[in-house]
């Protein structure tokens, strides 16, 4: 009996341990699933990667086989059949969607009412970040190429028109 009381006293006298890490104050719910987004991301950047692989093969093996030409020929056939939107879809929109989906799967946005703040956190997952990088860079490069190509074409047309006017004078 005495032992029991002594034990109780000893237990009551013990100090409460303080946990080293605090619990997360918020429940972080990602907008999209990271693994599923990575899986679909790979499929969406498949065509730019396929093109890169063909170009790499041509460069490494120094072969004269018309792999890249046939690839572009096939693209042209599809473009003609579908009204010209096919290549922009594969090389601009799909990579952009892949980058966007992977970004949304890594982002967590929480609004704190007390401090009136938006807390944005980004999960560090290699393959998702890699896909964001590939998707964004492909879309940027293709977009930049399309804009410059369009500007060059317009300026060439203007020059042709000026030459024609001068010729008439």
């Amino acid at each position: 009996m005495e032992n029991h009381e002594e034990f109780e006293k000893r237990m009551q006298g013990l100090k409460k341990p303080t946990p080293a890490t605090q619990h997360q104050a918020y429940l972080k719910v990602p907008i999209l699933n990271t693994r599923k987004s990575a899986a679909i991301g790979w499929w969406l950047v498949l065509f730019p990667l396929l093109l890169l692989a063909f170009l790499g093969m041509k460069e490494i093996f120094k072969s004269d086989n018309h792999v890249v030409d046939t690839f572009f020929d096939t693209l042209t056939v599809f473009d003609r059949a579908h009204g010209g939107w096919f290549s922009p879809l594969l090389f601009f929109l799909f990579p952009l969607i892949a980058a966007g989906m992977n970004l949304l799967s890594l982002l967590n946005i929480i609004y704190d009412r007390n401090t009136n703040e938006l807390i944005v956190t980004i999960k560090l997952r290699f393959w998702n970040l890699f896909l964001i990088g590939i998707g964004t860079s492909v879309a940027l490069i293709i977009g930049f190429y399309a804009v410059t190509e369009n500007m060059i074409e317009k300026s060439m047309q203007d020059m042709e028109r000026l030459r024609h006017i001068e010729h008439l004078k």
Partner: peptide
């Protein structure tokens, strides 16, 4: 044969994207 394979790979990749979506 290379033409066949490239055209086929292109179409398979395309249908693979649709299937995955």
């Amino acid at each position: 044969l290379s033409d066949v394979l490239i055209q086929w790979v292109f179409r398979v990749a395309l249908v693979g994207v649709m299937y995955s979506v």
